[in-house]
Design a protein around this nucleic acid. Sequence first.
DNA 1: ACGCAATCGCTATCAGGTCGCATTAGACAC
DNA 2: GTGTCTAATGCGACCTGATAGCGATTGCGT
Lengths: 145, 145
Amino acid sequence: MEEILDRLRLSGGRITTARRLVVETLLESPHHQTAEEISAQVQAKAPDVHISTVYRNLDELEKLGVISHVHLGHGPAVYHLSDEDHGHLVCSGCGWVTEAPHQAFSGLARALKARFGFELDTQHFAVQGVCSRCCGGGASGSAAV
Amino acid sequence: MEEILDRLRLSGGRITTARRLVVETLLESPHHQTAEEISAQVQAKAPDVHISTVYRNLDELEKLGVISHVHLGHGPAVYHLSDEDHGHLVCSGCGWVTEAPHQAFSGLARALKARFGFELDTQHFAVQGVCSRCCGGGASGSAAV
DNA sequence: ACGCAATCGCTATCAGGTCGCATTAGACAC
DNA sequence: GTGTCTAATGCGACCTGATAGCGATTGCGT
């Protein structure tokens, strides 16, 4: 927490209530949260904080490398602390998100690099699919919606 | 063309000017086009066709399985004839889109299936990365905008 | 030619996010 | 503690991409 605030200060930023609360929220619930969710959490403690301020602060924190955001598909992006490299698997059926370690994609990354000269980035956009629960895990048909 | 219109008719649909032009546009420029681009093309021939009509028709055609749309990342989705299975590689630098054959992802698909029970779908959402031109592939700088 | 309802054009609306601007309030100097 | 400067805020307007409602139109089977 203090570390993050220090980083904020070092970059010439000020520590405001809104900013402190955004960081707090991110630290308290380490899950993937949308800007709206974060905003709601922050507003629970300081009702005057506008969602645009939350966006601006999330942006700022991202520039500092503290957090990153991922687009899970349709709908809003989610923010998380940038602790480690991982991709995201999103179930298009139920929306469930699985984190997949970076190396799960290294094979694909190599292949795409070799065949297309394409440097894969799995961090900013999620990979879509259907989770075991939704695709009928074992036997039955696919109840695609 | 006629085949598509027939399919449209068989499903109980009517052949209207707007509809015909949308199909025409899709056939004439087989590239990936956004709804807006398609709309512009259609409006060049029939200025009264509203973009919401284009959306509705694209939707209809998609339900018939004639076309599909892909989200390339930020920004609008693109539509293309659903001729074959392929994924899309999008360069976050220049926006360049490469089509990658379905089997390029089969390794990843197998791995995700085995490790997470996750059924990969590479068709509806593109895979992000940086193309050879943009990541400095050869010599000069990367003129990322 | 008639009539029904699928489709249209239009406007309003939505979601997610960004921007401009006047005001507020950190943080440093004294 | 007070002053000063300006980063950051709150707010509303706006933007893009897409969708929904609704009355008018029009394709097309009869």
